[in-house]
Design a protein around this nucleic acid. Structure first.
Lengths: 335, 335
DNA sequence: TTTGGCACTAACTTGTTGACAGTGCCAGAA
DNA sequence: TTCTGGCACTGTCAACAAGTTAGTGCCAAA
């Protein structure tokens, strides 16, 4: 059901939302008189209309109005216009986005760090999902008699390493041979299917070529099974959200900190939708007092999600423009 | 100046400190009568003695007593006895400390994570300082035409990697030759002197052997200069400290969060002293409301610091015993 | 349809009061 | 000399009252 509001009601809602976003205080009728060239009584009657539609709320019977979730939603869907990036914001981002010497993942995390600073919200980068990372090199370096370091590099430039412990004495010749075989066989395998690959393709081969194949196979299998899920989560300005006045009591702060530490956000963000999505309050599955703005990016086969978390009274126009800018820029890099 | 307290005063102080540690509430005279077999009036007069010595404080004129910093100090120095590890605590730690398949740094971080859980305080591991890490292998893997990944492995099993961007076209033969030379020359170099080493030992050599030596040298120099300070900081249970009742207002929580994020702790902990050190309140340079208990460990040339941060009313006996246990166990591993 | 005026309301502030949990001090008992 | 019971005193806390403030809703007149 789409609400049909009068021009003036739209203007009023816009003023109230934007005012509340800035000040975090309920907006009274008097303070708007000047802006709308009419008396407070007129505004009050319009306000009570909007309240009836469910777009505004009161904290108590004699307080000013604040936008409801539905109000924010209406604002985002029908009123707000994407904001031009300010020259300053643009400049700061450009220098990172255009820095050719950064790999993609660094471009993204660094831009989001900037955005977090610019907006004072919390930024999150969910790294590329693993399925598109192909192994391009496996390297093993001995540390001492029964410890090795295994390093795996993917075609996208991700590096993972893991310590390997050998349960018995193994000649370095055998180790070398195993690594050589693994490298020969494994290059090009998606990283998340590496352990089944190891079992069915590699195990039979090394069994016939290598002496201590049991020990070696077990050691490598254990190490490699950890590589399967290198889904990265990167956050910037995590504490920003705590500085917002809506979180002004100790228990609430503790609660939200726990939610962040428990990585609940990851699940909250992982739904797959296209474009830029805005989840206001109870629309997201993370916390009723926050808004999550997120978008998926796909570059060169790698895909991931970038998101901002802030209070419900978020600078929607600016945030959306910023995210859009980053998404557009990293996706056009591809060429 | 060492205070000479009577037996009974010592007993009283002990009771008050331990009671306050448990309950976080000021201790009144009445509640102690039973424990000391005398009337509340007697206890009050002893209390005011201890207060005169500066060992106890009141929150306001008619409240119970709480230990002052000096009181805790006296308790730690003269009253407290190291506590036996409970079988449960011991068991949990043993399984990690004795797990041969873990490298040293993992043993330490994992034990400290357990300790953090056991105590509900915040644990910090300051990794080995870099000077004793010698480079044992450098590996370079091409990603695309002008991006490479450089991986450095040290003799202790630490792995660092960095993306390298080449400012122009370079043949893979040249890259290979450079890496080969670097490996030949650089093995055994301490990681923190690697950039000066690169400049004086490597640059002249590659200049005469490699075609595009300028580009390559610059790229490597830039990448390697970041390897110099791989001092690791690892924290566990960071939010534990926030759950303590002494941090029960939003601003205080924000303040302490900021201190943690700004890595102020690292500096606060880095003084070099032997044995197990206890810094109570203003004795530490981190925050007046917390106590830091820390100790340095030296294993096999690697050195670092492990520490616990908690409220001033910390279970000193237990914490000290736990830290001591870990220190002893990792240091004896050496053999 | 707009407006000014008026009654009304909830929150916030300030002051008061009584109960409570402690203390300090003192005189008398051990 | 040391300990104890008693009593006056004090700061905190919660509850309550009264006054102030910033907003509302409604109505009659423009």
């Amino acid at each position: 059901m789409k609400l049909l509001l009068t021009e003036r009601q739209i203007e009023l809602l816009k003023i109230i939302v934007e005012n509340y976003i800035q000040t975090a205080r309920p907006v009274g009728s008097k303070s708007i008189c000047d802006l709308m060239n009419c008396s407070s009584a007129t505004i009050r009657s319009e306000m009570s209309q909007l309240e009836e539609y469910g777009l505004l709320e009161k904290e108590h019977i004699s307080s000013g109005r604040i936008p409801s979730e539905k109000g924010y939603r209406y604002y985002v869907d029908h009123i707000m216009k994407p904001k031009e990036l300010s020259g300053d914001d643009m400049l700061k981002l450009q220098t990172i986005v255009n820095n050719k010497s950064l790999v993609l993942s660094d471009v993204i995390t660094q831009s989001m760090e900037i955005v977090s600073q610019l907006t004072n919200y919390t930024a999150i980068v969910l790294g590329s999902s693993s399925k598109d990372n192909l192994i391009s090199k496996v390297e093993v370096i001995p540390i001492d008699d029964n410890k090795l370091v295994a390093i795996v590099v993917t075609d996208k430039g991700h590096v993972e390493h893991k310590n390997i412990y050998l349960e018995g004495r193994v000649s370095s010749k055998d180790i070398g041979k195993t690594v050589e075989l693994i490298n020969k066989l494994i290059v090009g395998t998606p990283i998340d299917s590496v352990s089944s690959f190891l079992e069915f393709q590699v195990k039979p081969v090394i069994a016939s070529y290598v002496e201590q194949h049991e020990i070696l196979y077990n050691a490598f299998y254990q190490a490699f099974s950890d590589f399967t899920n290198p889904e990265s989560v990167h956050m910037a300005g995590r504490r920003n959200i705590l500085m917002q006045p809506e979180f002004d009591n100790a228990d609430r702060i503790r609660e939200i900190i726990n939610k962040f530490e428990d990585k609940e956000i990851v699940n909250a963000i992982k739904e797959e939708e296209n474009g830029i999505n805005v989840y206001i309050g109870s629309e997201n599955h993370f916390d009723d007092d926050v808004t999550i703005v997120k978008t998926k990016y796909v570059v060169d086969g790698e895909e991931g999600t970038i998101a901002l978390i802030g209070p419900k009274r978020m600078e929607y126009d600016r945030v959306i423009t910023l995210l859009d800018f980053i998404k557009e820029n990293i996706e056009k890099e591809e060429s």
